[in-house]
């Protein structure tokens, strides 16, 4: 017998690391996120109860996927969902997008459909205010209560809004698909905006728990999105922006925490700064005109460079802010530029 804590640990790790991947796969055949969540929750529960007895399977993700998919079939076939449908017709599920059994037999990696899921969550037919919560729940597996806390709303109200949004996805027929190259410029900004929203809502409140904050989850999601898309400079730009901003989180502890120029650079995370540089380089190598997130990342990069050079390159920042104001004159950009202009001369 395998000891309980090891099985629980394996299940918890599988849950945390692969929740979005599994949910994306289970949901892609039916477009029913709510049902897919139920099926996956059921599979996770069964893992917790059966693995301590039977041992952790060689391929925990594959095990969870198979159980979830079978459970989904049960749920779809059961009354009262399809009351007027004869039983033999009920067997005719939508054509599976992937032959999961064959995949598992060949012991291949489970394909990643999270990009499709991200585009579902940020579809123009989904209200902009619920896109970020939706992503946090279905891609990262956060529960409604923690999302509600971050957004400062009642848990019941948030849960209800999430259920409604998921229902709407199935009912309206939003496709689980990555937009075509032609549609990408119209569709990508909403995805990046929603990820940025997850960062923006939490970054001021992280305090000392900056490594397990929502802002850090947003950083992970931004890096994932950029990697999955591979050739979208603004996605890499957003990943760089959040990574740079998070590198300074250790210096933002305390109340009130010191302004940027007065922060002790020794507290900044050098590894994250290096990672931010690599991400920004990746964006710029794609050679398209600089978008909003790349410019903001470049501004962050210039600030972070103080850790290396000991001085703030005001001239470079001035140029970058002018570029940013031309592309995206947001309130944040205007405030940042004003602060730069009113900077006390040392």
């Amino acid at each position: 017998m395998v000891d309980d804590s090891r099985a629980a640990h394996a299940a918890a790790r599988a849950a945390r690391e692969s929740y979005g991947r599994l949910l994306a796969l289970v949901a892609s055949s039916t477009r029913d996120l709510h049902l897919a969540e139920d099926a996956l929750a059921d599979a996770l529960e069964r893992a917790l109860s059966s693995w301590p007895e039977s041992g952790v399977p060689d391929n925990p993700e594959g095990w969870l996927l198979t159980v979830a998919r079978n459970r989904l079939r049960d749920l779809l076939g059961s009354a009262p969902r399809r009351t007027s449908m004869p039983m033999d017709e009920a067997e005719e599920l939508p054509a599976p997008v992937l032959d999961v059994d064959a995949l598992l037999e060949r012991a291949e990696g489970i394909p990643d459909k999270r990009l499709e899921l991200l585009f579902v969550c940020a579809h123009p037919a989904i209200d902009a205010s619920i896109r970020t919560p939706l992503m946090l729940q279905v891609v990262l597996g956060l529960d409604a209560a923690s999302i509600a806390r971050a957004f400062d709303v009642e848990p019941a109200a948030m849960a209800q809004r999430l259920v409604r949004a998921k229902k709407r996805i199935g009912l309206t027929g939003i496709p689980f698909a990555v937009p075509s190259r032609a549609d990408m410029p119209a569709r990508l900004p909403a995805v990046l905006e929603a990820i940025y929203g997850a960062y923006a809502i939490d970054w001021l409140q992280q305090g000392e728990r900056y490594r397990e904050s929502l802002a850090d989850e947003a950083r992970w999601l931004a890096v994932l999105t950029a990697a999955l898309l591979d050739d979208e400079p603004e996605a890499w730009g957003l990943a760089a922006l959040i990574t740079f901003a998070q590198s300074r989180a250790p210096a933002r502890v305390g109340d009130p925490w010191p302004p940027l120029d007065e922060q002790d650079v020794e507290l900044w995370d050098r590894e994250l700064i290096a990672e931010g540089e690599a991400l920004l380089h990746r964006a710029q190598r794609l050679g398209q005109p600089l978008g909003r997130f790349q410019l903001e990342a470049a501004i962050q990069s210039a600030h972070c460079d103080r850790a290396r050079s000991g001085v703030v390159d005001v001239e470079a920042l001035d140029t970058l802010y002018r570029g940013l104001l031309a592309v995206a004159p947001t309130r944040g950009a205007i405030e940042g530029f004003t602060a730069l202009r009113n900077r006390p001369v040392p």
Binding site: H123, P124, A125, T172, G173, I174, P175, A177
Partner: peptide, 8 residues
């Protein structure tokens, strides 16, 4: 049609 994107 196949989905909402096609309908749009």
């Amino acid at each position: 049609v196949a989905d909402l994107d096609a309908a749009i």
